[in-house]
Design a protein around this nucleic acid. Structure first.
Lengths: 216, 216
DNA sequence: ACCTGAACACCGTTCAAGT
DNA sequence: ACCTGAACACCGTTCAAGT
C-alpha cells in the first residue's frame, strides 16, 4: 500500500536531531534554515511551525547536547566531579562544531536540571554547604568550558595548518614564550587538562576543609 | 582653507577602533559591514581594501581586545597570576559583547605574545619548568574564559528578565538544585570567582611543590 | 493544523568603473 | 591606491494561500 505522505511529519524532536547532525557535518556558519529544510525534506519555512525562530531552535540544540553528558552514580564528590568533567570535555570532542552553543547562549538548560540536582544532593550529603557546592561546581564547569573551547579552536587551526607553529622570528625574540608554547599543542591537551583538573580538585578539597574548620 | 577630503582616510587602526565601539554598542549579531561603513563615513566595500574579509577584521578586533589586558610588573607568580586573571575578567565586564570573540576564534593573538613572554620568563625564574608554566597559565586562562562567558550570558538573561529565577515547580521538585542555584546569580559572581581562583592557585602551589620534590 | 511559494528586507562579497 | 555603485548569491522571516 503506497502511502500518501511523502515524509513522516515534522516534530521538535526530529528537527533538533537533524539540526545537530547538520551542524556536526557542516559547522555553525553553514547551518542554515534552508539547508536544514532540505535535510528534512521540507521547505525552510515549515520549521517555523515548530520553533519561533532559528535562535530558539539553537537553544533546543544546546539543550539536547547538554543532555548527553553522563553523570556517574557512584563515588565521592571528588570522583564524581572528575568523571563529570571528563564527560563534558568528551562532548566537545564528539561535537566540536556544536559545543560553542553551550558556552555562548544565555540561559539555563532544563535538560540538565535533574542531573544537577543529583550531583548537588550527593555532594551536600558529604557535608558541603550550598555555597561550597556552588563554588566547586561552577569552577569545574568554567574550567572545562574554557578548556574545551580552546581545544576546539586550536585543533581546527592545526587541521587547516593556519597556526601550527610559532613564527620563527617570534620564537627567536621571545624565548620564554617559545619554551612554554611547545605545550600548547594538541599532543599535550590531555596532560594539561588532567593536571589542571587535579590541581583544581586539590585546591577545593583544602579550601573546603579550611572552611569547615572555621565554621566548627 | 577648506579641505577637499570629506573624511580622514581609512586605515586598519581606525577600522578596528570603530568596529570595537560598534560591537560594544549594538552587539555582535547587529555588527554589519554596512553599519560599520556608515559609522566610518564610507561604503561597506571600502573596508575590503584594508581587510580581506569580515572574519579577518574580527580577528583584528579580538587582538585589539586582548591587548587591553594589563600585566602587573611586580610580585610573585601567584600575585601576578591573580592580577592577570582579574584583569582578564574585567575585560569581559567592559566589553561583554566583544569578549566572546576571544573565546570563539581560532588562533594565537600576536598582541599578547610580549605579555606572555614576560609572565613566562618571570614564572620560570621562580623555579617552575616550562611544562608547569604551561599548565598553570592554561588552567587560569580557561577558568577565566569560562567564568567570563557564563557571567556575560547570565547577566544578559537577568537584564531582559528571561531567566531571573528557577521556575517554582522546578525548585519544588528538585530541592538540592534550588538550594545551590541561589548562588548562581550576579550578586554572587565576585565571591564565586575569587573562591575558585584561590582554590586553583592553592592547588597549583601544592602540585608544583610535589612535582619539584619528586624531581629533586 | 501543517505546509508551500512568493516576497521582503536584509547579509557578505565581487567587480568594473571612477578619482 | 583607494573608493563607489551596482550587482550576485545568499540569509532569516512574513504572510497569504493551499491542503
Amino acid at each position: 500500500m503506497a502511502t500518501k505522505q511523502k515524509r513522516e511529519p515534522l516534530s521538535q524532536e526530529r528537527i533538533v536531531t537533524a539540526a545537530l547532525l547538520l551542524i556536526d557535518a557542516v559547522g555553525l556558519a553553514a547551518f542554515t534554515t534552508r539547508a536544514l529544510g532540505k535535510k528534512l525534506g521540507c521547505e525552510a519555512m515549515a520549521i517555523y511551525n515548530h520553533f519561533a525562530s532559528k535562535d530558539e531552535l539553537l537553544d533546543a540544540v544546546a539543550d539536547r547536547l547538554m543532555s548527553k553528558t553522563v553523570l556517574p552514580s557512584e563515588g565521592s564528590w571528588r570522583e564524581r566531579a572528575r568523571a563529570l568533567a571528563n564527560s563534558y570535555r568528551a562532548l566537545a570532542r564528539v561535537h566540536p562544531h556544536a559545543f560553542p552553543l553551550l558556552a555562548t547562549r544565555r540561559g539555563t538548560l532544563p535538560s540538565a536540571y535533574g542531573m544537577y540536582d543529583r550531583v548537588f544532593a550527593a555532594t551536600m550529603k558529604e557535608g558541603l554547604d550550598p555555597f561550597a557546592v556552588a563554588c566547586v561546581f561552577r569552577a569545574l564547569a568554567h574550567y572545562c568550558t574554557g578548556t574545551a573551547l580552546y581545544e576546539i579552536n586550536t585543533t581546527a587551526a592545526h587541521a587547516d595548518g593556519s597556526a601550527t607553529e610559532l613564527p620563527p622570528e617570534v620564537a627567536a625574540s621571545l624565548p620564554s614564550l617559545a619554551k612554554v608554547a611547545v605545550y600548547f599543542t594538541p599532543t599535550h591537551f590531555d596532560a594539561l587538562f588532567q593536571f589542571g583538573l587535579e590541581a583544581l580538585l586539590d585546591g577545593f578539597e583544602r579550601a573546603l576543609l579550611r572552611r569547615a574548620a572555621e565554621q566548627a
